[in-house]
Amino acid sequence: MENRSDLNLSGIGKAQGGSYSHIRLDGMTKINGDTECITLDSNGTLTVEGALQSDTVSVNGTATVEGGLSANRVVLDGMVTVKAHAVCQDLLTVNGRLSIGSRLDGEKVEVFGSLKTRDDVQCEVFSVHGGFSVDGLLNAGLIDVKMNMPCRAQEIGGESIMIRRLKKFSVLEQFVPSLSAKLQAHTIEGDEVDLEYTEAEIVRGNDVRIGPGCKIGRVEYKNRLKRDGDAVIGTAHQI
């Protein structure tokens, strides 16, 4: 590690991938090849033509990683695309939009904007102020979602699941339902499940609340089911 050099670029520049200590980029930069470093700080536009591995990653602007991303702490402000598997062992904070071409694994995921993955999301804490699209299973110990745009996942599982809406129903949503701030999923399963503005085929839990704006095909609960007068439930069974 002591033999690694720093990489500092300003303006429009290119660099070869490899092992570095600290990377600081200001402007428009392209890195050719897999890159490993202790810290990466990018302000502007960054393209990594390979995989990126770093202890900490900070992006202010736009970034594209052609391979996978592996880091402990990641803070993204802007629009970022990772075209393969993303791993964040400690904290991932998204202020803007993050698109991942495969799955996301992490400890704590905070989204203030939108997250899109082509595969599963696995973490301990999943907190969203905005929206998400998960083409697979969203699995977390704690799921806390406050929607102001559409949310979707094939399956959702967790210990505590809470889905809320940040904004009221708008006139635009009446004419363009796809823009509605609601959650769509096939199956939602957890110990404590508290849903609003959710459409799902199956909801299972120990203690379940089906709140306003919900359309659920089947509810299976162990201890308690609380149902809002506005909620639509096909069938409900205590198991």
Rank of each mutant, 00 (worst) to 15 (best):
T198D: 02
I202K: 08
L98D: 10
G213S: 00
G17C: 07
G136K: 02
A200H: 01
S170Q: 12
C37K: 11
G18I: 05
A231F: 14
V109E: 01
S180P: 03
G130N: 04
S180V: 07
K226H: 08
A185K: 05
E192R: 13
E199R: 15
R165E: 09
I31Y: 04
E159A: 10
A185N: 11
V203C: 03
V128G: 13
N3E: 08
D26G: 10
K30N: 15
Q122P: 02
V111T: 09
V59L: 11
S180K: 13
V134M: 05
S99D: 14
L179P: 04
N43S: 08
G27T: 15
K167E: 07
L137F: 04
A200E: 02
D120C: 11
K167P: 03
I23S: 02
G141R: 07
L138V: 06
R224E: 10
N32S: 06
R165W: 00
I100Q: 03
R209K: 11
L25Y: 06
S114E: 05
V125P: 05
V65D: 02
G11K: 08
R224I: 10
A231Q: 06
E199T: 10
T29F: 05
K168G: 11
I163L: 03
K146V: 08
L183R: 05
I23M: 06
E49G: 11
Q174Y: 13
D77N: 11
D41M: 10
L137Q: 03
V109P: 00
D105M: 13
H129C: 11
V75S: 02
D105L: 15
G106P: 06
V203W: 04
